[in-house]
């Protein structure tokens, strides 16, 4: 099937099966590799993107359900004011170890700050708890979110 998706502000056409998860459309049909496969079951958050501003796990989102939604990925989030503050904070603290989950972490953090510019510790934990980091960089993730929130 032919689909036109709005990704990072651009309309892009792809030809994929109806049930293809957005994750694999982004990665393999659009060559946007920053959205990452971790579990395929909505359990790890590595594939988080924004759909109309909401954080969504793209591994569970069939392409046929997207319609004209506006999709933002890790490749595009740095161009938004909140995304820029978050990625700057991520770099200042150097959150990363392997970095594989960090795209999803940043997307979740950006959605949190968009809805709640000054989150408490509990707010951060509630928003981020499903996002697994196998390297265990959670303390720096928390710190970076707070730093980004200060700059708002």
């Amino acid at each position: 099937m032919h689909y036109t998706l709005n990704v990072n502000g651009q309309d892009r056409s792809v030809d994929v099966d109806d049930d293809t998860p957005l994750l694999w459309v982004l990665r393999d049909a659009m060559n946007l590799k920053g959205t990452r496969y971790g579990c395929g079951a909505g359990l790890c958050g590595a594939c988080t993107v924004h759909i109309d501003g909401q954080p969504v796990q793209s591994c569970r989102m069939p392409v046929s359900s997207l319609g004209t939604s506006k999709i933002v990925t890790i490749e595009g989030i740095g161009d938004t004011p909140i995304g820029k503050r978050i990625t700057d904070a991520w770099l200042k603290i150097d959150v990363m170890q392997c970095g594989y989950c960090q795209g999803g972490q940043i997307m979740a953090a950006a959605a949190l700050l968009a809805q709640n510019p000054k989150p408490s510790d509990d707010d951060i934990v509630t928003a981020m708890d499903g996002h697994l980091c196998r390297c265990g960089t959670y303390l720096r993730i928390k710190q970076a979110i707070k730093l980004a929130a200060e700059g708002s």
Partner: peptide, 23 residues
């Protein structure tokens, strides 16, 4: 001296650095 990871600026932009990203 505390030094940030050389790939960190690429990682926060979702650059294709991992094996799974190879084309």
């Amino acid at each position: 001296k505390p030094t940030i990871g050389i790939d960190s600026p690429k990682l926060v932009r979702g650059a294709p650095l991992f094996g799974i990203d190879v084309e």
